[in-house]
């Protein structure tokens, strides 16, 4: 018999009991006690771990989004703006920054973030949306709507 690819050489593909169990044991290698040595115990723990890993992929994304939102909201509130007004204001100025960038700027570049909130505030004043109407407009910010 001629093997055309190297993958077919791997013995774990077959129904051999040793190699089938070995696949599970390799995943259980870092556990302690019987959960790494006994197959019947290991298979349960490995199955559970794989379920956690599957759920964790989604949860991780949710956690990151939550953290970024918290940081952006904290940054906005320091300058008396709420999150929706910031997003709407930046969108109308055609500044397409995503949450990741905004959160990074809020945490690491507070002055750049302040400039962004100023732009959003100015736009909010101009277009008269959101809750910023009665706030004082920032000085020295020129948006595209003003230059026309």
């Amino acid at each position: 018999m001629v093997f055309t690819t190297i993958v077919n050489c791997v013995r774990a593909r077959g129904p051999d009991e040793f190699w089938r169990k070995r696949r599970i044991f390799k995943l259980a290698a870092h556990y302690i006690g019987r959960r790494r040595n006994c197959y019947t115990v290991a298979i349960k723990i490995v199955h559970r771990a794989l379920v956690y890993a599957t759920k964790g992929r989604q949860l991780r994304k949710q956690d990151i989004t939550e953290l970024r939102n918290a940081r952006i909201i904290a940054g906005c509130e320091q300058h008396g703006l709420n999150f929706n007004d910031l997003r709407e204001g930046l969108l109308r100025c055609n500044i397409m920054l995503n949450r990741k960038t905004l959160a990074d700027l809020a945490a690491w570049e507070p002055y750049s973030f302040k400039a962004l909130t100023d732009i959003a505030k100015q736009k909010t004043k101009e277009d008269g949306f959101g809750s910023v109407k009665d706030l004082q407009a920032p000085v020295g910010v020129i948006t595209r709507g003003m230059s026309k």
Partner: peptide, 9 residues
């Protein structure tokens, strides 16, 4: 510390 942009759990 949620009011700070450096917040992390």
């Amino acid at each position: 510390g949620i009011h700070k942009p450096i917040y992390h759990p």
